Simulated scan of single mutants.
Amino acid sequence: MRQYRFLLRTAPLDALEEAHVEVLAPMARSRRSMVLRAVQDGLVAGLRLSPDDVRPIAHLVALGERRRPGEFLGACSATVLLPLAEAVIVAEAMFGRFGGYAAWDGAEPELTEGGEWVDGGFGEHWHDALVAHVLYRNFAGGPSSPDTAFGGH
């Protein structure tokens, strides 16, 4: 669950949505119904959707958890949430999205006085590791770049 929460907080929304589409599409309709019910109860959204509306459900999960962390997770039954989380973590759209995971402390963002979540990296020290500039070096120790590091020019 920690890895899934990390992706929900840090992955680009389009990639996160695509991973959920990839996972929800082959899921049994009864399980998609449970996910939709969690979206409706936790995020108070998608009231007119059916379990067959895979992309809109995926969109609401990704966007809803970004805007209101923990609302969908808290409303979703563990019997469907755990398999969903495990499948999203290994989805093709999530490949290479764990940069900064080791530095993440797992904390949720803070609520402001107005009841909104603090944005902009959630004000957490682990966010610095996600946006830190990577310094590339060649074999001789000189400066390099991702383009030239692997034989490109």
Rank of each mutant, 00 (worst) to 15 (best):
M1V: 13
Q3R: 15
Q3H: 13
R5S: 08
F6K: 06
L7F: 07
L8E: 01
T10D: 11
A11W: 03
P12G: 12
L16V: 05
A19P: 03
V23I: 05
A25S: 12
M27E: 02
S30Y: 03
R31D: 12
S33P: 00
V35R: 00
L36P: 07
Q40F: 00
D41Q: 11
D41Y: 00
V44P: 00
R48Q: 13
L49I: 03
S50M: 08
S50L: 09
D53Q: 14
D53S: 15
A58K: 05
V61E: 07
L63W: 10
E65L: 04
E65A: 07
G70N: 09
G70E: 12
E71L: 10
F72E: 10
L73S: 12
L73F: 09
S77A: 14
S77I: 10
L82F: 09
L84E: 11
A85F: 10
E86W: 02
E86R: 13
V90S: 12
A91F: 07
A91I: 08
A93L: 05
F95A: 15
G96S: 11
F98I: 03
G99N: 05
G99Q: 07
Y101A: 12
A102S: 12
W104Y: 07
G106I: 01
E108A: 14
L111P: 01
L111T: 05
T112Y: 03
E113Q: 05
G114E: 14
G114A: 15
G115H: 03
E116A: 14
W117M: 10
G120Y: 09
G121M: 12
F122R: 13
H125K: 15
D128I: 04
L130P: 00
V131Y: 02
A132K: 14
A132P: 04
H133A: 13
V134Q: 02
V134E: 02
L135N: 02
R137T: 02
N138S: 10
A140V: 09
G141F: 05
G142V: 00
P143S: 10
P143Y: 04
S145P: 06
P146H: 03
D147P: 01
A149Y: 04
A149Q: 09
F150C: 06
G152P: 00
G152M: 01
G152D: 06
